[in-house]
Design a protein around this nucleic acid. Structure first.
Lengths: 341, 341
DNA sequence: AAATAAATTTTACGCGCGGCAACTTTTGAC
DNA sequence: GTCAAAAGTTGCCGCGCGTAAAATTTATTT
């Protein structure tokens, strides 16, 4: 690598003693050339400083090695984490990931689609905005480019969907809460941006009824992705007005719960499972910050390791030509017991 | 845009009645062609569906419109936020940003440099890992590609540095804390990854001495970017061992403070400014979650709006040929009084 | 109206690599 | 040692656009 800078593949062909078409094959897939020539190439690569021009490569190749990763809101550490995970897996598989965030804005999501189209990606890993998404735009995009959806389920779109088994999350938590104390009220947004929220609500109702309890739901006003603030403001109103019929609150997600905990603090309501506590609060998702709330938040952990592994698996198989029907995968959550409930 | 799909610039030249070289100029910079021809192009653009092939464009252009944005740790919402801000500004200025995170790993930072080099970026906005960075790699990169550093100061590298006036942050907070209660102890990491931490420590010592107080510093063990966990674990040890000489703790940054608050909770130490509180805790940076800790964290807000505006300003000016000497800009912080101190 | 400057068109070539066809060499099993 | 398959080579064209130089048109100035 310290040697002379090579300008193009022809020049590298001269100095390495390998013909250009073979080099082209090597750079496309090192395994596609004989072991002995691969060794020769790699030895020359150590002596000379050469990397193929990525623009020239992509210009003519039918399929690039580009992979788009799109998340709805990168300032949410959950998405940052899963994006990191996906990114590493793509790199390990020899692809070039590019990271994009819709920042909660449908218009931006559509812009990202256009931007991705222009780099002819081999595939895309897409966590759509959800309810706010331009469904027709998503559908059109999925038809044009091999796309695996994750996190937010949009019925039937893309090669596959990989996400969490939301009903199981809620069942798990409702069971736990009922076993250890009063049955929970459900705290959620009235107009959630994420379709998972609807499944969670339904599962809450069903789980409660199966256990012989009456469901109680409090729906917070507010739009957008400032979940913590909505949880704080609306949770505070709910607490102040005595809207909850029990001492146990199950929040639709951790970010809402984090804001709700703040509201409890502001109203001097002691949260937790101790003798001196007035209220129990639980969340869902195991947000990176939930370990550090006061009290630490009891929640259901998303299996984002499995979600990301599965997503790239399906995408790369599809890219490499394997055809199979659209399938949905839902991973189970794991109960994380901490001191808030 | 609904019309027939055009395959290349030659074809678009035919249907639009503009020559290809002029179209090329237009797409490079619409302002570089006469208003009347610009109108003709844009009218044709409405009728026909055409966007230049981005790979072919970048292949021969000396300067692409690509801009790299590199942050040390994207799972930190502070960096996610500033990255979003930078991204939007780049798009608004007609550039194509690409987002990268070093994930706290020097090897990854170097990989990102290589990856960026291969896309011939017009410029790069780089928040380096700091102490862990491979200084020679950063220096070499800055020499090759116009780069503005932000957040972490590496002496003299790049076109410019834009960040926060760390000494002012600490002075502001130390002044406030001393005015309203006992002078603070300083809680920080022994081996901080970020050079800002060193400036903050020095400023703490100086500020305390100027006010006639004796500085007390507690340095937490631990490496890496899991600041909250380090703050919780080491803060807990410090509290348990009675390492603090006053009832007021100034944390080097908010993430450490968030963990420290958890430690306080775990030891049943009531934090805040009320009569019944035993300890005051303050942070620095105004992390997005600091508003929602219990109690909400008193801190110094980074002016990331100004930081990002300034960073792109300097970069784009440099790209457009304006030469001027290396300069460092430090923006002041704003005291955010909440109930933790 | 002529002179000058500026913008555009024409023409022509280059960028670095992908891909194909026809041919030659190497490989490995028998 | 034979021979077919696999791998590599040579030569050529195409991709879509950048860019330079010369010729032409258009706009501005005096």
């Amino acid at each position: 690598m310290t040697g002379k800078k090579i300008r193009n593949m022809d020049e590298f062909a001269s100095v390495s003693g390998i013909s250009r078409p073979t080099l082209s094959k090597y750079f496309h897939d090192p395994a596609s050339v004989r072991a002995s020539t691969r060794a020769k190439v790699e030895k020359a690569l150590e002596t000379y400083d050469y990397t193929p021009n990525i623009f020239a490569m992509n210009q003519n190749r039918k399929l690039t090695k580009n992979v788009g990763i799109v998340v709805p809101y990168l300032a949410d550490p959950f998405f940052a984490e899963i994006a990191r995970n996906l990114e590493q897996r793509c790199i390990a598989a020899g692809y070039r990931p590019s990271l994009h965030s819709s920042h909660g804005q449908p218009a931006l999501e559509n812009d990202i689609f256009d931007s991705l189209r222009s780099i002819k990606p081999a595939g895309v890993l897409l966590a759509p905005l959800g309810r706010a998404s331009d469904r027709r735009a998503v559908e059109k995009f999925c038809e044009q480019i091999p796309t695996v959806l994750f996190d937010s389920h949009l019925q039937g779109m893309g090669l596959a969907f990989v996400g969490s088994d939301n009903p199981q999350f809620v069942r798990l938590m409702v069971d736990y809460l009922c076993r250890t104390g009063e049955p929970p009220c459900f705290f959620e947004m009235k107009h959630p941006s994420n379709p998972n929220a609807n499944k969670r609500r339904q599962s809450y109702i069903q789980s409660m009824e199966e256990l012989g309890h009456t469901p109680h739901i409090f729906q917070a006003e507010g739009e957008g992705w400032d979940f913590e603030e909505i949880g704080r403001r609306e949770g505070g109103r709910a607490l102040a007005s005595g809207a909850f019929s029990t001492n146990t609150i199950l929040c639709s997600n951790d970010r809402l719960a984090i804001g709700f905990l703040t509201a409890c603090y502001e109203q001097n309501i002691r949260v937790g499972i101790g003798e001196d506590c007035q209220i129990r609060v639980a969340g869902q998702d195991d947000h990176p910050f939930s370990r550090f709330t006061c009290p630490p938040l009891t929640t259901v952990a998303q299996d984002y390791e499995s979600i990301s592994r599965r997503s790239v698996e399906i995408l790369f198989r599809a890219i490499e030509g394997e055809v199979h029907a659209h399938e949905d995968t839902f991973f189970e959550g794991r109960l994380v017991m901490r001191s808030s409930a």
